Amino acid sequence: MTAADTPPLTLVPWSDAAFEVLQKSNTPEMTEHLGGPESPEKLADRHRRYLDPDENGTMFLIVLPDGAVAGSTGFWDHEWAGEPAYETGYAILPEFQGRGLAVAASLAVAEAARADGRHRWLYAFPSVEHAASNAVCRKAGFELLEESEFEYPKGHFLRSNVWRFDLEK
């Protein structure tokens, strides 16, 4: 799938106003494959970290042409198999799911990572049990490498698929 085949959206840099998206994403349904909802304190701490891209990666709001905020995505430094790389993830709010926005956001964030230019690879680590997220990786052109134990959040291990996107292509 290419960006031309996906719905239009814009990635807008993280800001104080983005905290509302984190709150809306912090439900049992949205965090089922991520260890469950975070406490209000942990959520506020994560939001503060997202405001500092130099230290914590580059986070974005996913904004539709009508101005509606559909979720969030981003990329950050992550070492895999001994190599420096980026990791990515996304959260599409329930009322916007099923429209191809996760694929479009994944392709858009890959372009942002490519423009950043520090690493060749962009990785995603969805739970092996999360069929929708694995389908997003496949449709966005990521290559399935293997299964692995993955820690997210800290102290919570899950069996994940390791998907890789080549930013040099």
Rank of each mutant, 00 (worst) to 15 (best):
Y123L: 07
H78E: 02
R99Y: 12
A81G: 08
H130Q: 11
T88K: 04
I62W: 01
E55F: 14
S133Q: 10
V136Q: 06
N134F: 08
S127H: 05
D54W: 14
G98S: 07
A131W: 04
E95Y: 14
A135P: 05
L64A: 08
S106D: 15
G141Q: 14
M59A: 11
Y123I: 01
S133R: 12
G82S: 01
R99N: 11
E87M: 00
Y90M: 07
H119W: 12
A140V: 10
A70M: 07
W121Q: 06
A91N: 11
L51A: 11
V136G: 06
K139Q: 15
A104G: 13
H78V: 01
G82Y: 01
L107F: 12
A113T: 09
A112E: 07
E111M: 10
R114S: 08
Y90Q: 00
H78C: 04
A140T: 11
A131R: 05
A132S: 12
E129L: 14
I62A: 02
G117C: 12
E79C: 06
L51W: 07
V63Q: 12
N56S: 10
V128P: 07
E83Q: 08
V69E: 10
W80D: 02
P126G: 10
L107C: 08
A140W: 08
G89Y: 01
N56W: 09
F125V: 06
A70Q: 10
E87A: 00
P84K: 09
A68F: 00
D52S: 15
R120M: 01
H119T: 14
A70G: 10
P94W: 13
A124W: 01
P53S: 05
I62G: 04
A105K: 02
L122N: 11
T58K: 09
N56F: 11
A110R: 03
A135N: 14
A81W: 00
G67P: 03
G57C: 08
D52N: 15
D116S: 10
N134A: 14
S133G: 11
L61A: 14
G57N: 03
G100T: 10
I62S: 01
D54H: 14
D116Y: 10
R138M: 08
A91V: 13
Y123R: 03
S133K: 13
G57I: 04
A113K: 09
E111L: 13
D52K: 15
E95G: 10
Y90I: 10
Y123M: 07
E95I: 12
W121L: 06
T73V: 11
N56C: 13
G89W: 00
W80I: 00
P126I: 04
Y86W: 02
W76R: 01
A110W: 09
H78F: 02
A131D: 09
D77L: 00
D116N: 14
V69K: 15
D66C: 06
T88V: 07
H130N: 14
A85M: 01
V69H: 10
S133D: 14
S127M: 03
D77T: 00
E87S: 07
F96V: 07
Y86I: 00
Y86F: 02
Y123T: 03
P94G: 05
P94C: 11
D52L: 15
N56T: 13
I92R: 00
G89R: 00
F96I: 05
A81P: 07
V63H: 04
A115R: 14
I92W: 01
L101Q: 02
A104N: 12
P53I: 03
P126V: 03
D52V: 15
E87Y: 00
T58V: 08
A91F: 13
F75H: 03
